[in-house]
Simulated assay, not measured.
Amino acid sequence: MGATLKLGTVAGVKIGVHWSALGTVVLLFALVTSGLAHAYPDQSTVAHVASGLVAAVLFMASLFTHEIAHAVVAKRQGLEVEGITLWLLGGVSSIRGEASRPRADFAIAIVGPAASLASALVFAALAWFLAFIGAGPLWVAVASYLAVINVLLAAFNLIPAAPLDGGRILRAALWAARGDRVSAAVWAARAGRGFGMFLLLLGGMEFLFGYSAGLWWLMLGLFILLMAGAEERQAQTGAALAGLRVRDVMTQDPDTASGDLPVEAFLHDYTLVRRHSSFPLLDERGRFEGLITFDRLIAVPARERPTTTLREAACPPGEVPVADPGEPVTDLLPRLSAAADRRALVFSGDRLVGIVTPSDISRAVALHLPRS
């Protein structure tokens, strides 16, 4: 998930906020403000609004603490953390690679709920301190609310269903017991799918009976169901591609083109004959200048095609992932998925030797997927 607003870097991890996180802030602000207004009607409207805003912002800070804990431990375990994005349903840590052993997998998973419990203790201590100094019942209630909600956050995340932290813990336990990481990941994901369906059923029933919280459970259940399904497919794909190198899946010696060609001429004289959907651009010395795809070709307005060159319409070289023929395919997958055109070029030294496309990956998975 891409960040709408980049906030900076903490502990070497890029931090961002998705626009949907505003929904969480608004919802919490409304719930806390209305609840405090009902519980403390003697307080002013300004105090109610201020306390609701503080509660919403500090809760987002709690979510950030939860995710940064995952990221820090993952980095200590040798994994690459691309960033953290806060969004509507919480936070997402983008971690490249997998833990090398069950103990590391467990450590990365358990630290999130532990951080939430630590936040709960901090807010509980703050509530006690505010009460001790006579800060007023409104602010004591805000601190107490944040303590309780962080306990609930930790408890919810410990449910043994992927993609929740409890699902990761279940995966680590099954991995340690059976010695098979793929099987452990599949079972954790299936538990997540079951839990997601339960939340959808719960949310649907509440929504039908007029409870507004049902919509929240519906969204959360759908998110868990989709993410669990994606994790199961990812586990199976990883198993199918394990041990394969880029040279094993790439299309060798791809057709190339000159970046000086006009788009219109290329469309009429080349694409209908070659039947490929992507072409690396090489200059007269064989240097890589970009990647042109059929989608980029047809995106050029018809009136501009005679004067627009392939180089001008192509994906720039810096945005095209490159790979070595001996690189494991599983290491290339994250870069391939993040690429704008979802294609990677393979170089042996300075010489272009192949291209990897989603079709190449799908073909390799189909050929090597374990049959039950």
Rank of each mutant, 00 (worst) to 15 (best):
G35Y: 11
A115C: 14
V49H: 08
I110D: 02
A69Y: 09
V72F: 08
I108V: 15
L36D: 02
P113Q: 13
D42P: 09
I108W: 02
R76K: 14
D42T: 15
A107V: 11
A125L: 14
L130H: 06
A71V: 04
F132Q: 10
V122F: 12
A39T: 14
S51H: 05
I133P: 06
A74M: 03
S94Y: 07
G112P: 15
H66K: 09
F59P: 02
V46M: 10
S44Q: 08
L89R: 02
G83M: 11
A125Y: 07
E67Y: 08
A69K: 08
H70N: 10
G90D: 12
I133K: 09
V111S: 09
L79H: 00
A71D: 03
F59N: 06
L121S: 10
A109Y: 11
V54E: 01
P113H: 13
R101I: 03
K75L: 00
D105G: 14
M60D: 01
S62W: 04
A120K: 03
K75A: 00
D105K: 13
F129D: 06
I84M: 08
A127I: 03
A69V: 12
A74G: 06
A55W: 03
R96S: 04
R101S: 07
Y40S: 09
L53Q: 02
S119C: 14
D105R: 15
H38N: 13
A115H: 14
R96V: 01
G91N: 11
V46R: 12
G83Q: 11
V49R: 08
F59G: 03
A56C: 05
T45K: 03
F129A: 15
A61C: 08
F64A: 08
V46H: 08
A104C: 13
A107G: 11
W87R: 07
P102C: 07
H38I: 14
V111P: 06
V57R: 01
